[in-house]
Structure formats: C-alpha cells, structure tokens
C-alpha cells in the first residue's frame, strides 16, 4: 500500500520534470531557428525589475537581428542556477558565453572551466571580483561607481551652500551585489567633500518595491528629520515614495529623492516631480554585446572594459524623455 503511493509520487515527479524539460526544449528551438554559425550562451540574472526586462529584451532582439543562435537562461537570482547554466553552455560548446553575475564572488572555478574549454566569456552589466583577468575577455556595462558619483555630485551641487546638516538615508541594493557596493562607494566619495552631507541610515531594500517601502517606513519612524533619500534603483525609490506619502510628506519637496536606473516608472515619477534626479543605467547593451561577440569570434582583441553610454535626468529632462521611454 505505502510502496504504491510512493511509486505514484515518483511518477508524478518524473512527469512534472518531463513537462518542464519539454518546455525548455521548445524554447531553445524558437531561438535556434535562424541559421547562423555563431552561438551565444547568455545567463541572465533573472527578471527582478523593469530594467532587467529591458536588458533581456535588448539582448534577445539584437541577437535575433545579428542572426546569432542565442541560448538564454534565467537564473532567478541564484548563483548556483547561473553556474549550472554556464556549465551547460560549456557542454553545448557554444562559441561565446556572456552573463550578468548575480553576485560578485565565487566565479573562478566555472570561468576556468570555460577557459579550459576554449570558450571566451563576456561579462555584461555586472563585474566579478576575480583577480585573474584572463578569465574573461571583456566587461560591457555601466560603471556603477561612476553612477554613484554622478548621484552624489548632483547632491553636493544642490547643497553646496548648505549651512546646516543635511540628513541622507540610503536604500541599498541586494547586499553583496556589485551595483550596491559600487553605487554606495561612488556616492560616498562624491559627497565626502561637504561635511554637512550626512548619511544617517543605510539599509538594504533588496532592489524591490515592497522592501523599499517597508524600510523607508521604518526610517521615517526612527529619524524625525530626513532631507534626502538616495535609492540604488528606481523600484526601491518608488516603494519609498509610497511610504513618504503615507507619512503625509511630499516626495521630491519635503524629501529630495535621488535614484539610479531611469526605467519607465522611475522617469514617470521624476516627471511628476516625485524623484528629483535619476542617474541612467542603460540596459540597452544588446547591440554593443553583439558587436563584441562578433569581434571575439573574428579574433580581434577587445578593450578590457567597455562602458555603456549613460546620461542623467532631472525632473525637467524626465518630462521630455518620458514619451520615448520604452522600458
């Protein structure tokens, strides 16, 4: 009796797995439809934000345009998934592997495996902290430190004549992630010249709206006077805006808000004056990636660092840019 039920359980599981792998296969076929000799394995972080989705779409679209055979894998924000995906790419003997690492550390082993298999690796959007630079060909992406600096610089300019202390709270990205570390470092670097600019609280909001709101509410209760909010991405800023409004304050006026990314919802909030300044973090690096892939396969040497072109938006600029914001 018991054994039979266990068998049933096993059967169900196997069936489920079959269905799951079947789905995966049909996905592969879709992308491999175009005839091409270059195959590219791309391991994406996940789909945690609008920014990421735009990034994914840009890569998928430009790969199709270039006629590459793209094998796309979504790691759902787990490093082990990403390592698994890269290993699969190595087994499939793709020509180039590209990926956005979920976290900075712990990549040496799998990158070495790729190197031993003779497959060049391109990092996109986020870097790894490996000392051995030969493990990857190039790193295409934003300079997060620079983004942080831009944000800090704007703030320093705004308050250069300040005579009283300016209380800043910071919503960090996922603890340990490159953008969280670099955006924090760049920002702190830019504001350290002005002793009135003080970060009074800093806590992770995991890059999500829900956490951004929850943490901001706690900040508002714990700190009676907050002048500036610096959020490491738009989603956390959007969550925080709701918290600020619930506290009966006016975002953008009572509390100045600086954020990074410039996704559609963020730009919209900026155009409404709720976010004062957004530093762009350009997700549309698909074309640049495809160029790099082509060059690598052709045997050309690439710069170790390719920085994406990025701008900044004030409220006024956001109003003008909003209609063109697709993501």
């Amino acid at each position: 009796m018991k054994r039979r039920t266990k068998m049933w359980g096993l059967l169900t599981l196997t069936l489920l797995m079959l269905v799951a792998t079947a789905c995966g296969k049909s996905d592969d076929k879709k992308t491999s439809g175009s005839a091409s000799d270059i195959s590219l394995g791309f391991a994406q972080v996940g789909a945690e934000s609008g920014w990421r989705t735009a990034n994914t779409n840009s890569i998928k679209d430009s790969a199709a345009e270039a006629g590459f055979d793209l094998k796309f894998s979504d790691a759902q924000q787990k490093q082990e998934n990403q390592i698994k995906a890269i290993r699969t790419f190595i087994q499939q003997k793709v020509d180039v592997i590209a990926f956005s690492p979920v976290v900075e550390s712990g990549w040496d082993t799998v990158l070495k495996e790729a190197k031993d298999a003779g497959i060049p690796v391109i990092l996109t959007d986020r870097a790894v902290d490996s000392k051995d630079e030969s493990l990857y060909v190039t790193f295409i992406g934003s300079d997060f430190v620079e983004e942080g600096k831009k944000a800090g610089q704007w703030l320093a300019d705004q308050y250069k004549d300040a005579s009283a202390d300016v209380n800043i709270v910071e919503l960090q990205g996922t603890t340990g992630s490159a953008p969280a570390i670099d955006r924090k470092a760049g920002f702190e670097d830019a504001i350290k010249g002005n002793s009135h600019l003080k970060i009074i609280a800093s806590q992770t909001g995991d890059f999500t709206r829900a956490k951004g709101k929850e943490v901001m509410q706690a900040f508002l209760k714990a700190n009676p006077k907050i002048d500036v909010l610096y959020a490491h991405n738009d989603d956390m800023a959007l969550g925080a805006i709701q918290a600020i409004e619930a506290a009966g304050l006016k975002p953008g006026i009572d509390i100045k808000i600086i954020s990074v990314d410039a996704v559609h919802d963020g730009v919209q909030a900026a155009s409404e004056g709720k976010i004062n300044f957004i530093v762009e973090c350009n997700p549309l690096l698909g074309p640049q990636l495809m160029d790099a892939v082509r060059d690598v396969v052709a045997g050309k040497t690439l710069e170790k660092r390719i920085v994406t072109k990025e701008g900044t938006f004030t409220s006024e600029e956001a109003k003008a840019a909003l209609p063109d914001r697709k993501y």
Binding site: E48, D206, T208, A210, G239
Partner: peptide, 11 residues
Amino acid sequence: GNVASADGNNA
C-alpha cells in the same frame, strides 16, 4: 496591493 505592483520573483 501595498506596493501597487506584482513582482513574481520577490513577492
């Protein structure tokens, strides 16, 4: 409802 958005990954 609290954040007026649905996040399949993190909710």
